[in-house]
Design a protein around this nucleic acid. Sequence first.
DNA 1: CGTTACCCCTGGAGGC
DNA 2: TGCCTCCAGGGGTAAC
Length: 275
Amino acid sequence: MPELPEVEVSRQGLLPYLSGQSIVGVVVRTPSLRHEIPAGLDARLTGLQVDGIRRRGKYLLIDCQSGGGGGWLLIHLGMSGSLRLVPPATPAQKHDHVDLLFAATVLRLRDPRRFGALLWHEGPDVDRHPALAHLGIEPLSDAFDGNWLYAATRQRHAPIKPLLMDSRLVVGIGNIYAAESLHLARVSPLRAGNRISRQRCGLLASAIRSTLTASIAAGGSSVRDYVHSDGGAGCFQLACAVYGRAGEPCPVCAGKVRVIRQAGRSTFYCPRCQR
DNA sequence: CGTTACCCCTGGAGGC
DNA sequence: TGCCTCCAGGGGTAAC
């Protein structure tokens, strides 16, 4: 479920509750997520303080420098992960795999499909962690614009849609926002990367930026003590133009929205106005 | 090297 | 009601 906006909304929602708080314990009920959760987390994290929370792509990075022997907790929500803040001693339900215990609250990771991950990086330089080292540009950074996208796609023959979802190129754009951004920019998901003009790369880059930004704004307003990544934010609040709307009329041109398969994923688009 | 296929896992929807 | 198939917001790896 979570793409960049959902992770960013989670970050913003958690920050005021966890910043400056000390970890008093860790409970791992299910170590077998995408990557095995490292053993001995409880001993390693207890006593550390949360100094801040960053985001890199779809990874949430919890800064636990203070307290000696510090590092970073990396959380990825996969397809079905979500984070909640619950009162201490709240009984765990099915698929509640990890609790990070604080004095006044519990950060609880739930992930039915277990495609998510919880990793620990010793030391300050989290960007050198193997999971982050090869990630591409942040789509909300100043450096991400039409010129960047144009240069980055010149040698790429693959269709633009799977390229947008390639985190080694650009991070955070998942299946929903790839489809919605391409529709907003009126670029066909089938068009080869190197066959998009500089001007249309500009349109696409700003479409990506505005789609993500609008989704963050829509999700951010609803976050309090419940941080949800399971459809609360993003498309389900803003209503998608094409995603999940096969057969329905395109809101721009009234053409019929089509669904095709690209690199194993569903792609929704309007063949009439997306070229 | 770039690109695609397959796989990890559970649950919900829909057909029979 | 149950059983079956297909599908799902991600990404790591293997193979072409």
